[in-house]
């Protein structure tokens, strides 16, 4: 009886195991339809939701036209929700910041790279898919390099900022400078603009900002600022696809984005007008383009 019971129990367990494996198999086999009725384009609220909608609606409409399916624009509550939904596959396409993008590299369901957003430099007119961080001081300070900043007060923008913290910290460390030891005090000032204002107010002796902020400040305060160091290129935002979006759709989206070009395309104009970004189309790089950024962020212990 005990044997029988044991035998029955073994058969039962076997049956359960087979059913479970089948269920997993069914789940694993559940993939996105090749020709979906609609796809979603998501981003997270880095500005006010209304401006984001107005800025990206032409992009959604453009993709709708190019793909021949309905494209729904979604603005998630925050980046965490966007990341979660990319991972879940409940959004198809996403516009995400570069630091956020590189944070997905280690994920099992890391999104598929499609293209990199480009901007036109206000100063040179050149179109780049990257920008730089700069370390600034007042022109009147007499500093000629980073080493002159020893014992001085230094301002970063935000602990989570790529160009205002991660890259500058990497630049300093490349020169064997530990900010906590090297400077008398380091401060986080929140915004790039705050670093400029604090510099001008004399609250910090040097600070780190993005090159766009520097150019704007130079126009506003000509001759008052000097650059002590430039960073390596920092990739701009990435347009990615959910891990399970079909390669054909990814290819179609990529081509559509590349076709926008750097001119007065409605997609560029809408972004320029609503977000004041100097949008100039998209270009195809690769995931490797973002690796230096990943290293920089890892070095600064930044949690994007």
């Amino acid at each position: 009886m005990a044997w029988r019971l044991r035998g029955l129990s073994s058969r039962f367990l076997f049956l359960i195991s087979v059913l479970m494996l089948l269920a997993v198999g069914v789940l694993k086999a559940e993939t996105r339809p090749q020709n979906p009725a609609s796809i979603s384009l998501a981003t997270y609220p880095f500005g006010d939701a209304a401006s984001i909608h107005q800025a990206f609606s032409p992009l959604a409409q453009y993709l709708e036209t190019r793909l021949g399916v309905r494209v729904n624009l979604i603005v998630t509550r925050d980046y965490a929700e966007l990341a979660r939904r990319l991972d879940e596959g409940t959004v198809d396409l996403a516009w995400i910041g570069s630091a956020n993008y590189v944070s997905t590299f280690d994920s099992e369901r890391s999104p598929q790279y499609i293209a990199t957003y480009r901007e036109r430099s206000k100063e040179s007119g050149e179109v780049h898919a990257f920008y730089r961080a700069v370390i600034l001081a007042l022109a009147s300070s007499g500093y000629s390099g980073l080493t002159d900043l020893q014992g001085k007060r230094f301002g970063f923008t935000d602990p989570d900022s790529t160009s205002g913290h991660a890259y500058p910290r990497m630049m300093l460390e490349q020169q064997q400078i530990d900010p906590e030891q090297f400077f008398s005090d380091t401060y986080f000032l929140g915004t790039h603009r705050s670093v400029i204002e604090a510099l001008l107010a004399g609250s910090v002796h040097a600070g780190a900002v993005s090159d766009g902020t520097y150019y704007t400040a130079m126009a506003e305060y000509p001759g008052q600022l000097q650059v002590l160091a430039w960073s390596d290129p920092i990739p701009l935002d990435a347009i990615v696809a959910a891990f399970d979006l079909s390669p054909d759709t990814v290819a179609q989206v990529r081509q559509a984005l590349l076709d926008i070009g750097s001119g007065d395309h409605p997609v560029n104009l809408a972004i320029q007008q609503n977000l004041a970004w100097p949008a100039a189309g998209f270009e195809q790089r690769s995931a490797e383009f973002y690796l230096p950024l990943k290293r920089a962020l890892a070095g600064s212990a930044v949690e994007p």
Binding site: G155, D158, P159, D185, T186, Y187, F188, L189, G190, T191, S194, A198
Partner: peptide, 10 residues
């Protein structure tokens, strides 16, 4: 602790 001027200001 972090000398986060911005947060303290806010």
């Amino acid at each position: 602790q972090d000398h986060n001027v911005n947060t303290l200001y806010e």
